[in-house]
Amino acid sequence: MEELRKKARELLTSGAVKVIIGYGPGSGKRVRAVFVRKPEQADLLICDDRCLQNLAVYLTKPEVKALGKAAVVARLPTLRAILQLAAENQLTDGQVVALGISPEGKMTELSQFKAIEEFLAGFSFELSAEEKATLEKLDQMTPEQRWQFWQEQFAKCVRCYGCRASCPLCYCEKCLAECNQPQWIPAASHQIGNLDWHIIRAMHLANRCVNCGDCSRACPVGIPLHLLNQKLAEEVFKQFGARSGMKAAQEYALCNWKLEDRENFIK
C-alpha cells in the first residue's frame, strides 16, 4: 500500500498524470472509488482485498476524462478491461497509466498496453474451482430447471441498470435498451422485458466480459448476473480459443470469419 501511495505521489508531483483513480475509505468498512488529484491526498489510497470494483469503468466517463490523464489502480480484471477497451478503440496507448496490482498485492507500473499484455500473460484466467462448480451445477440442471432458475432471478430485476452502469465494457452512449425505434427490448421490468434485457446484455458481452463480477456486486436485488457472462466466456473460449482483454489489438471472436474456422456454412 505504501508503495502505491508513493507512486501516486510521484506521478502527481511530476505531472505525469492529473488524477489517480483508486480505492479510498468508504462507508463503514466499505471502500469506494476516489479520484486523487493532489500529491498530499495520496495517503487516502487503500489497496486490500475489499478493493474489488473495476475502476476501468471510470475511464470512459466524460466527467472523469475531463480531469486529465489518469492513472488507475488496476487489479487483474481492470487490466483486462483496459486492454479490451483498447481493442474496441475506446482507449489509446499512453492515455492511461495502470498501477497493476497482482493477486498478492504487489504493484507494477504499466504505462503501455504492451506492458499490460506482458503482465497479464503471467497469470492464468481459468475459472476457479468454485466458479467452475457453480457453472457446472447450472449445466447439470435440466433445461426446465435452468429456465426456472433464471426466471426466478430475473423476476427480481427492477431495471435500475446497475449492471450496465458498473460494467467497464458497457460504455455505449445510447444503449440498445434505450433504443425505441424499434423498441428492441421492452422498457418495463416485467418477465419478458427482464428476460430480453439480461439475455441481450449477456450476448453483447460475450467475448468482451473480463469477469470482474461488478454486475453481480452492483445488482441491488442480488441476481448472479456474472454467471451468464462466465458461461458465455467459457463457450467462446471452447469454440474459438479466445479470451477477452488479453491483447490491446484483438479480434472479436463473434464478428470475425477465418478460412480455418471449423464452420463451413460460408465456404
Binding site: 469503468v57 427492477v158 431495471r159 435500475c160 446497475g162 452502469a165 458498473s166 421492452p186 418495463a188
Partner: peptide, 22 residues
C-alpha cells in the same frame, strides 16, 4: 464523480416517485 448513473438508489427508495409511460 464516482456515481455510475444507475437507478438503484431511486428504485430501492420508498419515496422516489418519478415514472415513465410506455
Amino acid at each position: 464523480l464516482r456515481c455510475l448513473g444507475c437507478g438503484a438508489c431511486a428504485f430501492v427508495c420508498p419515496a422516489c416517485v418519478c415514472f415513465d409511460i410506455q
